[in-house]
């Protein structure tokens, strides 16, 4: 059994966006803080720190989930994908490109989380209905868009030609 004292900083190593990285964390350090302030991956945003708003959603071991409700020490050895890991070079993913085309983001603060959820969601359900898309999005709060253009961007990517 691994045991860490409250004030002990331990090394946490994980694969983030295809690279082995490491940083140090006390047990209480939120994964969201670890990604941002230890690993300097500021693309993941923090909106509520109590698991409701969805801004901090990242993909951990293939699943979209809240990074504010996970502690960095729990993630030693995990494989994580963040918004920085979506585009390849200057080439946006089709989803990112559709968000631009449809004006699916305004302030862009919630966007990283929504992209991570949607990327995982479409991998499991490539041809969702609009109701399924809205159900998936209900785990995110966006205060700018009213969600309309987000839904149309996702439907466009899933069903093409939209």
């Amino acid at each position: 059994m691994i045991r860490v004292k409250p004030d002990e900083r331990v090394r946490v190593s994980l694969v983030v966006n295809g690279r082995w990285l490491f940083g140090h964390a006390e047990p209480r350090m939120l994964l969201s803080d670890f990604l941002r302030h230890e690993l300097k991956l500021f693309g993941t945003h923090v909106g509520c720190e109590h698991g409701v708003c969805g801004a901090c959603t990242v993909e951990i071991d293939g699943r979209a989930t809240r990074s504010c409700l996970r502690y960095a020490v729990q993630c030693d050895g995990a494989t994580i994908r963040t918004v920085e890991g979506l585009a390849v070079g200057d080439t946006l993913t089709p989803l990112q490109a559709a968000f631009n085309r449809h004006h699916a983001l305004q302030c862009g603060f919630c966007t990283a989380g929504i992209l991570m959820s949607t990327t995982a969601f479409l991998a499991e359900n490539p041809k969702p209905t609009e109701a399924e898309v809205r159900d998936m999005l209900s785990g995110h709060i966006c205060r700018c868009t009213g969600y309309e253009q987000i839904v149309s961007a996702i439907m466009d990517v899933a069903h093409g030609g939209g």
């Binding site: 585009a87 990112q96 631009n100």
Partner: peptide
Amino acid sequence: PRMEDAALLTGN
């Protein structure tokens, strides 16, 4: 389409 988006969409 907005010029602001590229940075926001990529975590940049």
